[in-house]
Computed example of a mutant assay.
Amino acid sequence: MVEKDPTSPVSPLAPFPPLPPTESRSRAPEFYGFVAWTSTYLLFCLYLLWALLPDEYIICLGISWFPNREWAILLPAYSMVLVLLTYFTYFALALSGTPPFSDISTITDSRAHLPPGGGENPYFAHARPNSVSQMYDIPIGMVNRVIYGSRRNRAVQESARP
């Protein structure tokens, strides 16, 4: 019995893309992550000390100039406004780029694979026994007829209701 290579493309357990051997991988991202994590905590601690310590303690540490304390409130407030404006801007850009419901691009696009017109309906070819027909996208009108029925059938059903 021949065993499959664990990176074989036919093996469902193979990682894709295959990982490089461990000796060739760089550990630089780990160090960068640790430095970023450490510096973030250090800056946050310095921010808290600046915001909460009285002026005498900061001057005793040898710091002769530091920003006004009102910035301890203004920086987080401005940051939150900036984040909210960023979300609002992306939401507005997404809305402005969305076509109206009456546009045909909400139903289909240039990649749609529709059958050629004329002749026998290619969708009926699927009903033949042992048939392997072409693969096409289903038009929205046909989907609506299957799900909701035709207008004529709905009119008959609605008129039959008491």
Rank of each mutant, 00 (worst) to 15 (best):
G119H: 06
R25D: 06
A112P: 03
F124M: 11
I59L: 14
A94D: 05
R151A: 07
F101A: 14
G119A: 01
M142W: 14
F34T: 09
I104F: 04
A125F: 03
A125E: 14
G117F: 11
V156A: 12
P21E: 12
R128L: 14
Q157F: 05
T108L: 08
E120V: 07
A94Y: 04
D5C: 11
S133P: 13
S150K: 00
P100E: 04
S105T: 07
N68H: 14
T38Y: 03
W37G: 04
C45D: 13
P67M: 01
P162V: 00
D137T: 12
S26D: 06
G149N: 02
P99N: 11
Q157M: 12
E70T: 15
A112T: 10
G97H: 08
P100I: 06
L82T: 04
T40K: 05
R154S: 09
P17I: 04
V10L: 13
S110W: 06
E70Q: 14
E23G: 02
D55V: 07
P15R: 03
C45N: 02
L82D: 10
L43N: 02
L85N: 04
P99A: 06
V156C: 09
G33Y: 04
L19V: 13
Q157W: 15
A160Q: 07
L84M: 01
S133G: 13
S79D: 00
P67A: 06
L114T: 05
L43C: 06
I59C: 02
L42K: 00
P115S: 05
S110Y: 10
G33L: 07
P129L: 13
S150R: 01
N68E: 12
P15N: 01
S64K: 08
P122R: 01
R128P: 00
R151C: 08
I63F: 06
V35L: 15
L75H: 13
R27C: 12
A51Y: 05
K4Y: 12
N121L: 01
Y47R: 01
A51L: 03
F88S: 15
A94F: 05
Q134H: 02
A125V: 04
P29Q: 03
I140L: 15
E30H: 12
D103M: 08
T89F: 11
E56A: 08
F124C: 09
